[in-house]
Amino acid sequence: MVHQEKDLRELVIKTARSMNALGINVNKSGNVSVRARVGELEGFWITPTGIAYEDLVAQDIVFVALDGLPHEEFAKQRKASSEWLMHAEVYRHRQDVSAIVHTHSVYATALACQDLCIPAFHYMVAVAGGNSIKCAPYALFGSEELAKIAAEALEKENACLLSHHGVLAVGGSLSAALKLAHEVENLAHMYTLTRQLGEPKLLSEAQMQEVMERFKKYGQQ
């Protein structure tokens, strides 16, 4: 069990460093978590606040219990990311989600700063699970309000923009969540360029539904 816990914590560190290496995050911004169970406690491992990703070791990764109660065995941990409430709320609402990646990627965040969603300008928008990648309303970082807003935005989709803030992507694994966050930034870049060419021409709801049905059979089954 101890080795499994360490492996998960090291995977959180690897994912956090990968965000920066991919260019979808900078410095200590953003955060990463993975759902876990420690003993009888259900919760998640999350990056700590205020520590550069390249300096992290497994012991720095923080366990947060979903019951919201303090637990003596974790009292001497590092302080969790300022966004731990947001991660907890998403995990409570989405039992199918095993990992969360939050970035401040440039193009997606630029759109979020204008309260713009990413509409169906390209079929790959459906990779997030809907006809668009919505932009959730603004709320102060680290607040209960933002946590509730984020969970609501991800009720049916697997990624959203956070107004004047960044990107939130979820998945069945850390790898899946990271890949989705990277794809959202790529789409945001393409959409920004498309807007410069004129009014974007959007795919219809029926066309996007066809894409989502095709995605169910895409790749190695």
Rank of each mutant, 00 (worst) to 15 (best):
I51G: 02
E83D: 10
A151I: 07
G129V: 05
K79V: 06
A58T: 12
S82V: 14
V62R: 03
D96F: 09
Q95I: 06
D67C: 07
Q114P: 00
F141R: 14
E72R: 11
S81H: 00
L69T: 10
E42D: 15
V90I: 15
A110H: 03
E42N: 15
I133D: 00
A153G: 08
H71C: 10
K76W: 09
A88F: 03
P119W: 00
Q95Y: 13
E42W: 07
C117T: 12
W45D: 04
S82Q: 12
H71R: 10
K76V: 08
H71I: 11
L140K: 15
A151K: 03
D67I: 08
A136H: 02
A112T: 01
Q114W: 04
S98E: 15
G43D: 03
A110M: 08
Q114C: 15
A153C: 11
V62N: 01
H87Q: 00
E42A: 09
I118R: 01
T109R: 05
L66V: 04
L111E: 05
A88K: 11
S82A: 10
D67A: 09
H87A: 01
Q77P: 11
F63L: 02
I46K: 01
E42P: 04
I149T: 14
A58V: 10
G130V: 05
A65H: 10
Y91T: 03
A88D: 01
G142P: 02
A75L: 08
G68F: 02
S82M: 13
W45Q: 02
V57C: 13
W84F: 15
F141N: 15
M124N: 03
K79L: 05
G130A: 13
A112W: 04
H122F: 06
L66E: 08
R92Q: 10
L146D: 04
V125P: 06
E54H: 11
Y138D: 06
A126S: 13
Y53I: 02
G43V: 02
S98A: 14
V125E: 01
L56N: 09
G50K: 11
Y138E: 07
F121V: 00
S82E: 04
I100P: 01
Y91F: 14
I51Q: 01
W45V: 05
Q95L: 12
D67F: 11
Y138P: 05
H93L: 06
P137V: 08
K76N: 15
H104M: 11
V125Q: 01
I46T: 09
S143K: 03
C135S: 13
V106I: 12
A151Q: 09
D115V: 11
F63Y: 04
